[in-house]
Computed example of a mutant assay.
Amino acid sequence: MKANDKAIAFLSQYIGKRMAHENPNPITRYLDGILKSVSAGSMTAEFEVREDQCNHAGVLHGGVISMLLDEMMGTTLITCDIEHLYVTINLSIDFLYGAKAGEKITVVSEVFRVGKKIANVEAKMYNAEGKLLAKGSSNLAATSIPFKM
């Protein structure tokens, strides 16, 4: 897979900073993570679990976990040389362990294949001790919307 050097250079300037900074995507602003690393087909970010993201049992809501993994997978895809924007067409999540408000979690995503129409991406979520909390995979379909960076 070819790298999108322009996107990687753009994202690299935000390493160590909040991903919500000047980001037009409301979901990215809501999740408010800190970008840790970015390279062709790979990205890592850290998030703090907030009370407003937890369910009635006091652990990170499954919908928020799905949103975190989906957002990271989609964002990671732009580090590859793509001509159009992609949208998620399926999302499979395994919820393994919970995380409580105040905990730091890390999401690592990786692009496995970018085809003419379909891309395959995976993401994993870890707690501060490195325990795997959730993992997901997604296929994304190319749209007719040109990707410009």
Results as ranks from 00 to 15, higher is better:
43 M>G: 05
75 T>E: 06
92 S>N: 15
80 C>D: 01
133 L>K: 05
36 K>Q: 14
7 A>G: 01
144 S>G: 07
48 E>F: 07
82 I>E: 02
135 K>F: 07
145 I>H: 07
137 S>L: 05
86 Y>L: 01
89 I>R: 07
136 G>T: 12
132 L>Y: 08
63 G>A: 04
47 F>K: 05
44 T>D: 12
144 S>D: 10
54 C>S: 03
67 M>V: 10
97 Y>R: 03
94 D>T: 00
51 E>I: 01
27 I>A: 10
68 L>E: 04
60 L>S: 04
63 G>E: 00
134 A>T: 04
83 E>K: 09
21 H>N: 11
79 T>L: 08
51 E>R: 04
37 S>H: 09
103 E>K: 06
25 N>E: 00
60 L>F: 13
99 A>S: 14
108 V>R: 10
32 D>T: 13
82 I>Y: 06
27 I>C: 04
77 L>T: 11
28 T>W: 06
130 G>S: 06
45 A>W: 00
21 H>D: 08
139 N>E: 02
6 K>S: 03
78 I>S: 05
3 A>E: 08
17 K>N: 13
107 V>P: 13
80 C>L: 05
94 D>Q: 02
92 S>Q: 11
50 R>N: 07
29 R>E: 14
95 F>L: 06
135 K>D: 01
142 A>N: 04
68 L>G: 08
37 S>D: 13
138 S>G: 13
56 H>A: 15
48 E>S: 07
70 D>K: 00
54 C>N: 00
136 G>L: 15
93 I>F: 02
124 K>I: 00
54 C>Y: 00
5 D>K: 15
52 D>P: 05
41 G>T: 03
134 A>Q: 06
14 Y>A: 08
97 Y>K: 05
104 K>T: 11
104 K>R: 10
101 A>M: 02
13 Q>S: 13
58 G>A: 01
33 G>T: 11
130 G>H: 04
